[in-house]
Design a protein around this nucleic acid. Structure first.
Ligand code: MN
Ligand code: MN
Ligand code: ZN
Ligand code: ZN
Lengths: 138, 138
DNA sequence: TAAAAACATGCAATCTGAGTGCATTATTGA
DNA sequence: TCAATAATGCACTCAGATTGCATGTTTTTA
């Protein structure tokens, strides 16, 4: 079990106060967070700094951006690459139209897709919209 | 073979000059178009009118909005529902990171996806990013 | 360890696309 | 023809994303 400080260092990120706080904040969240969500979670906070922090996390491979179709970027911590570095595990994302929360379904991978000749895939995003488990009451 | 005027009327849309022009413009395009793309395609044009026109088309079921992850909304004509009204044919979308064009792969449907208990799907979007046929030169 | 270099943070400001309010003009249809 | 209804133009607003620059910190290097 590694300290957050160490996790950051392992990703070439200097563990400053805000970074540690934001990491913990992201880690404690079950859903993907927008910059506004993050900002609301801090008392004193400069949104530019938060913005640059999340972008640093993204660039260094700590978080991934989630596009849930709302037009607002959200972010979620990458699953700690267990053992080997899976380039990127293309899991699906669920956006609840009721509570507006967006969840990473990390266990549900995107099935293989065949494309017309000439189209070379490099990345993909499968977004499901509907009602989440909390809202459906099931 | 129906006139564009008739198509619009069939969708409860008054066939004004701009609407006819925009319909033709969308029809002639092989790729999904942003509002800017559309605006550039017209000499005299008021972007608000174009905006409201495309939104009217969308509301009336003539076009669908395409979310290609760039943060800019694009639009494409719906395939003329051949015969029966398929509520919505969830085809996939391809966004070329080279030429920035977004294509509807209307023949490629989104495969069936299973979700965790409690998650009720209502809509979905499968976006593939990569290099398109024109850019890959294959 | 002191100065330089590299990086982080704050704050102001810009940019872009989306969307609305309202006055004006064009259509429709009684 | 007149009133009702819809379409269009133009001016604005708004939110989120992103950058420029000055200042504060940390890390390196000599
Ligand atoms: Mn995710
Ligand atoms: Mn499409
Ligand atoms: Zn929900
Ligand atoms: Zn291309």
């Amino acid at each position: 079990m590694v300290s957050i400080e160490q996790v950051l260092r392992d990703h070439q990120i200097r563990p400053t106060a805000i970074r540690l706080l934001m990491y913990r904040f992201l880690k404690d969240s079950q859903v993907a967070l927008s910059l506004n969500d993050i900002e609301s979670g801090f008392d004193q906070s400069e949104r530019t700094t938060l913005y640059r922090t999340i972008k640093t996390f993204e660039r260094k491979g700590l978080v991934h951006q989630v596009d849930d179709g709302t037009g607002v970027a959200k972010y979620a911590l990458d699953k700690p690459a267990n053992g080997k570095q899976s380039t990127q595990d293309l899991h699906l994302h669920f956006h609840c139209t009721n509570c507006n929360e967006t969840t990473c379904l990390t266990e549900h991978k995107i099935p293989h897709i065949s494309l017309p000749t000439g189209f070379i895939p490099e990345d993909m995003n499968l977004l499901i919209k509907g009602v989440c488990d909390k809202c459906s009451g099931q």
